[in-house]
Computed example of a mutant assay.
Amino acid sequence: MARLCFSEGYRLPDLGATADFIKVNKHLPGIPSATEVAEQGILLGEMNAKLLEKIEQLTLYVIELKNDNQNLSERVIELESKIK
């Protein structure tokens, strides 16, 4: 069963660890590989729950990036004002 990414206390997987997993395994963590799907098939309900979890994770990563970008933009404005 997929975890609720928007629940209090949810720990978002580290992107570096996810990238390392993908390099080694050639698929997302928690999602079966293409070979596994071809050999064993998938249960649509389970796969939909897993995909929803990944969508929620992506949304949280985008929110983090937006916040980081906003903070960097504010810092650039601050530094530019000090230079002038």
Rank of each mutant, 00 (worst) to 15 (best):
P13Q: 01
T18L: 06
P29Y: 00
T35N: 12
E78P: 02
T18F: 04
E53D: 14
G45Q: 15
I77W: 09
K84W: 01
I55G: 04
A49T: 03
K54Y: 00
N69A: 09
E74C: 10
V62P: 11
L51K: 00
G30C: 00
L15G: 03
E78Y: 12
K23H: 08
A19T: 03
V62E: 07
L28A: 02
Q40S: 11
T59Y: 03
L12N: 00
I55K: 07
G9V: 06
V24Y: 12
P29L: 00
I63Q: 14
S81R: 09
V62F: 06
A38V: 11
D68P: 12
G45M: 10
L51I: 03
L43K: 05
A19E: 06
I83T: 05
L79D: 07
N69G: 09
V76E: 03
M47S: 07
L28R: 13
L72D: 14
E80W: 09
L51G: 04
L72C: 06
E8L: 04
V76N: 09
E56N: 04
G30V: 00
L15A: 01
S81H: 13
Q70Y: 11
E74L: 14
F21M: 11
E53M: 02
G45W: 02
I63Y: 13
Q40H: 08
A19P: 02
L65H: 14
P32M: 06
S7H: 13
L72Y: 15
A19K: 14
L60P: 03
L44Y: 01
R75N: 07
A19V: 15
N69F: 13
T59P: 07
R3T: 06
L65G: 13
E8D: 10
G41K: 04
L12H: 02
D14L: 09
I77C: 01
V24M: 07
K23L: 04
L58Y: 12
T35K: 14
G9A: 04
N69L: 08
S73T: 08
L65A: 09
L58F: 10
P32Q: 02
L58V: 13
T59G: 08
T18D: 05
S81M: 09
K26R: 07
A17P: 08
T35W: 09
I42Y: 09
S33T: 08
I22M: 15
L44S: 14
I83A: 12
A17D: 09
S7N: 12
S33H: 03
L28Q: 04
L15P: 15
N67S: 14
I55M: 08
L60F: 10
K66I: 15
N25A: 10
V24H: 14
G16T: 04
L28I: 04
E56P: 15
